[in-house]
Design a protein around this nucleic acid. Sequence first.
DNA 1: GGTCCATATTGCCACACGGTTATGCGTTGC
DNA 2: GCAACGCATAACCGTGTGGCAATATGGACC
Lengths: 103, 103
Amino acid sequence: MDRMSAYAALAEPHRRRILDLLRDGERPAGDLVERLDLSQPGVSKHLRVLREAGLVNVRTDGRRRLYSLRPDPLVEVDQWIAPYRVYWSNRLDALERHLEEHP
Amino acid sequence: MDRMSAYAALAEPHRRRILDLLRDGERPAGDLVERLDLSQPGVSKHLRVLREAGLVNVRTDGRRRLYSLRPDPLVEVDQWIAPYRVYWSNRLDALERHLEEHP
DNA sequence: GGTCCATATTGCCACACGGTTATGCGTTGC
DNA sequence: GCAACGCATAACCGTGTGGCAATATGGACC
């Protein structure tokens, strides 16, 4: 298994859910297992993918492992989408102009 | 094959490249084949995925098929990322404050 | 040291993905 | 009609993914 891109990491719904949960702050892995309706090893595997994609940080605290968000790769994705934002806002502008001229 | 989510569709680099090319406007499939270093059926398969994910439109023009961008699913992705934008801009603010207070 | 707790890793499996070559199918132009 | 074009689909294949149960690892507590 070689490292997965941020885009590929985001393709999996459970992984997006994990990131959403981490927006509230650092959480131990077990916390995530409780809310994900997925086996513990399943969650652990997804966490590994997110780690390798650079989307999360881990910190060991006693026997727990605390995960937190590391948004850098998301910034990259956001930058990829940015030009499309321009694209669709232009189309909305065009629509508005159309509606103004043909009410 | 059941329908692929926009996120999953974006996981494939060739497909992102196709969308990038379509930002310049409508293009026939063959045009995309030329620039993708991929067999014609390969491109065709990716176009099918993009169609089923709602990311592109097709229009038949004689024996060509013209593809164009349909950004709606990207808007959804953008909306998913939006809260993270807040997240990392807060972190940047915090960094700035830190630097101001400890120059 | 031994036991329990929290998490990671392994082994296994069904299945989907991405690629290729070969083929089908509608359209155009002679 | 028929040959060539443009593209889609079919058939096939190696590889990766995502799920689970079982096991290993490592810290905490007695």
